[in-house]
Nucleic acid binder design. Structure first.
Lengths: 235, 235
DNA sequence: GTGACAAATAAGTCTGACTTTTTCTTCCCG
DNA sequence: CGGGAAGAAAAAGTCAGACTTATTTGTCAC
């Protein structure tokens, strides 16, 4: 699942990244490369590479005679999959989950509309297959099977949209859906209405009915947003 | 405007990044660190740092005994502002511009709806100010003045949405809008209908009318999409 | 107080030697 | 003739140390 772990510099990132995104170093904090290198027991070259990566994510800024200063959250590259993973793994998880769900609610309906126009026959078939898989696993606490097909379904929609930016959100959506099943409370079987909606989306895409596909997915994402409000009301 | 240029490794990135995103090295191409270091006349340490950054953008993958292999476009971190800049600066510009405009058409309406709910009094004022600035610069070929207020307007909307992911798209939107004025053909004064829409959006947000704000911005983005189809018709 | 000059500091750079992993080659045995 | 194991080769990965350079801070004279 994790992509970085390779190499010493990857190990450093796997520790420093989460620490920074978790807010352990408040914005403006100053770190020194040599000091960090000692703490992590690696050479300065390795630490420098790690710092360069953090810098490319806009998590920190390296300036001469000053050191490595932590940037405010508002400047982070919050679309970097690595940053998203780190934040989802830390204390910021609920907030990040909400942000991503809102993003989903904006992107997925439009993606579905485009998918209805651009999906290949093969993608239509995959979509139907996923929807059927969801139906088959929708009762009797087969949450894992349901999740698997749910993720695949949304991935196909995003890919079929034909927009590369949408397609790259597949992992994000997967993370959000998986989080809902694994971390959040999920005793019950999935909402039957949601299952029906997915089946109807597959139909709409197959029928090239863009407006209907968009509307249906909008209903799905509205449901996801409401779910969040139930779990963590307020604001 | 450019963020990277600092340091030797930044200079290398400024050359290698655009080259890769422009497709000069086809996916699967193998580069060797030492060779690159020689070509750019920098030490291996510097080149390694550059490669690490490219790796964190998923543009390349570094493997032992193999070298630095270029990854397929489908794996790039296409939301990385740096990658976006590089692609906008290269041959991929039209395609990238289209992707981003589609993304805008998904995100901005939803952001406007949220802004109507969450905008502070100050943000409402800024919004009105921007809209007025657009009106004032909408006639007589004052394209730069118009662009300035247009960018500010959309930035305020995205920030006022209260969603960090939306807020971080401010630079992207700015880039798209600026591109339309500077690179694409733009002899005429801006479409009066678009100007009116912006004013109405400011009103809707001030009136806390989320549905109306969302609808109005959707009209704006639809206009932007149509503009693209006029300039580069087909698919 | 202001401006210039000097010192301190931490990042930036380079080099060369060494290690480790992975792949290719070769060669022997079945 | 095929397959697998041992060895060689190649390139990234790691480390240590010396040196450079930009930036800040502090001081002193005016």
């Amino acid at each position: 699942m994790s992509t970085t772990g390779r190499g010493l510099h990857g190990h450093v990132l796997e520790t420093l990244g989460p620490a920074i995104t978790a807010g352990e170093y408040p914005p403006g904090s100053v770190l020194r490369t040599d000091e960090l290198a000692q703490q992590f027991d690696v050479s300065r070259s390795v630490m420098r590479e790690a710092v360069r990566v953090l810098e490319s994510m806009h998590l920190v800024e390296s300036r001469r005679r000053v050191g490595v200063t932590v940037r405010p959250k508002s400047e982070w590259n919050v679309y970097d999959p690595q940053v998203i993973r780190w934040r989802l793994a830390g204390a910021d998880r609920p907030h990040q989950l909400r942000s991503l769900t809102v993003l989903r609610s904006a992107v997925e309906p439009v993606a579905a509309g485009l998918a209805a126009k651009n999906a290949t026959a093969e993608q239509c078939a995959e979509l139907t297959e996923c929807a059927l898989g969801m139906v088959a696993n929708s009762r009797g606490h087969q949450l894992e099977g349901y999740l698997f097909h749910d993720i695949a379904f949304h991935r196909v929609i995003l890919n079929a949209s034909g927009n590369e930016m949408f397609a790259r959100l597949g992992d994000v959506v997967a993370e959000v859906l998986a989080g809902r099943t694994h971390h959040e409370v999920m005793f019950e079987d999935p909402d039957p209405a949601a299952v029906t909606l997915h089946v109807q989306v597959a139909e709409a895409v197959r029928a090239r009915d863009a407006a209907r596909a968009e509307h249906l997915v909008r209903e799905i994402t509205v449901g996801a947003l409401q779910e969040l409000d139930i779990l963590a009301p307020g604001k």
